[in-house]
Amino acid sequence: MEIDRRKFLQITGLTFLALAAKPAFDLLPRPVAANASSASQAEAKRWAMAIDIEACKEGCTDCITACHRIHNVPDIGNRKEEIKWVWKDSFANSFPEQENRLVESTFQGRSVLLLCNHCDNPPCVRVCPTQATWKRDDGIVMMDYHRCIGCRYCMAACPYGSRSFNWKDPRPYINEVDDSYPTRTRGVVEKCDFCEERLARGDIPACVEACKYGALIFGEMKPEMEVYKVISSNFTLRRKAELGTQPQIYYIL
């Protein structure tokens, strides 16, 4: 009897050891997977966006409406459980480190369009325990809503407040569900994904398309692209750039 118990413990221990070893084996590079990813990397892209703060029309929310409509972003109706992919906030709140009377007076009362910065060094990706959020080769910080366990570590890690959590089932709060895009389920984190589904079809992001004032410039970071030209020829700010996240949303002053 006593030996049985000891044996049981030993077997249990070995089982846990084996369970622990399995993921380690999974981490070993597999030739097939490696080939596939290097093939898609052949054409390295880097998406980026420039936002012209002065061109962005005060009080206009066309981009927000377009984005939230096509992505089935719910309108929860309270601050506590709010879900948003793009939104506007004051200049002072968007760039708290720019405490400078001169700049503040120039942009006094201006609101700034905010969204996921699709960082080159994204802290949310670093902390995610399941790789439910990761950075694609083209720079888009993606979300896999199938894999997210809802630990909200990414929300703690994101310096921009770009991530929203589904505290409850979002469906009853979507005015009109767009069939062509999935909704989310409760218990997962969501955010802007640069309209990756539209990019795959060759379209530009919905917010860029919706802007009547040309305030949003989107494209690849290549010298011949407009986004590259405006960023390199204007003075731009990036939100909390001092944190080393390398945000890829550039604000033109």
Partner: peptide, 29 residues
């Protein structure tokens, strides 16, 4: 930690897709 998860049924994703760069993964270990 379990009761804090939004999708508790998926908790084993932490072991199915082990992510050494996440401190939460190491904490569970």
């Amino acid at each position: 930690v379990l009761v804090d998860l939004g999708q508790p049924a998926r908790v084993f994703n932490m072991f199915l897709y082990p992510t050494p760069n996440s401190i939460l993964f190491w904490d569970m270990v």
